[in-house]
Design a protein around this nucleic acid. Sequence first.
DNA 1: AAACTTATTGCGAATCATTTGCAATAATTA
DNA 2: TAATTATTGCAAATGATTCGCAATAAGTTT
Lengths: 155, 155
Amino acid sequence: MGELINVAQERLRAQGGRMTIQRRLLFSILDSLGEHPTAEELLLLARKQDPDLNLSTVYRTLRWLEAESLVSSRVFAEERRQERFDAALPSEHHHFMCTNCKDVIEFDTDLFGAIKGQFQELSGAKVETGSIVLYGLCSKCRQTKNGNNLNLETE
Amino acid sequence: MGELINVAQERLRAQGGRMTIQRRLLFSILDSLGEHPTAEELLLLARKQDPDLNLSTVYRTLRWLEAESLVSSRVFAEERRQERFDAALPSEHHHFMCTNCKDVIEFDTDLFGAIKGQFQELSGAKVETGSIVLYGLCSKCRQTKNGNNLNLETE
DNA sequence: AAACTTATTGCGAATCATTTGCAATAATTA
DNA sequence: TAATTATTGCAAATGATTCGCAATAAGTTT
Ligand SMILES: [Mn+2]
Ligand SMILES: [Mn+2]
Ligand SMILES: [Zn+2]
Ligand SMILES: [Zn+2]
């Protein structure tokens, strides 16, 4: 934490950009938030401190961060097919999404390198990036034996 | 090949559905096509044989197949954030997309089970599905030493 | 084979997520 | 403090997918 804000500020300066109130706010939220918000969720969070913040600004800021490789985004298999943004500085990690409560859990694995290697061998391709996404029932939702919550997963 | 059409037809019948010209056409294209088309790409292919086919019908058919677990869909990291559909009967496999030519290559790995296992242990979650997506330069594009094609990947 | 029932289609309009143009505003620099 | 121009908020545009509905056609019954 505290990382993103500083790195971003440097880069901003380096390219003649300006550190606006909106950006500072968004940077700091992203930096401390351990989640994977959509643009709209981020907007809602940010509006608690800056009620006039606009969705366009959120998108513009996210896209800039993305171009700087300071956030990444992906589309999970949800009802609404919207991007979710990940503020983690490029530490490679993967994701699990609970199909019931939609919670996202991050995880790491040493086997990912092996998989990339395997595929490169076999195909002759050069793998640059990649990620794993798992779906299922998180431990919390497993205990709540598919009863009370909507969206029950039988089996 | 030939699989999807029959399975789909059975299911259709079983639920009082009708085997229309449009569906038969789409089923057969999906079945023989070894690719991962978007709804629109599929429409274009199908229109060669049925010029009046409508995009809505394509989507409706794809969604039905999806509900029947006869196709799956995912959003790759492309310019246009659109779903790509995979007709493969639920044989688990993973994907590589070339960032240069956008080609999708399928692959399988024995290590995926281990990863799921690892995560389940650690988190207490029950993993149901999941997939790996890799990005990089396919062997073809590697050879074309990032020169002629647009979208060059330096490094 | 014609009549009947109703699932499915094509079409246009709607919706959802994201982007863009532009005039007003604010961050930096001089 | 004034001057410069990057950035913002807003409204309209775009791209992908969905929806409502009247017309059509698949499967069924006569
Ligand atoms: Mn993450
Ligand atoms: Mn596939
Ligand atoms: Zn859960
Ligand atoms: Zn390629």
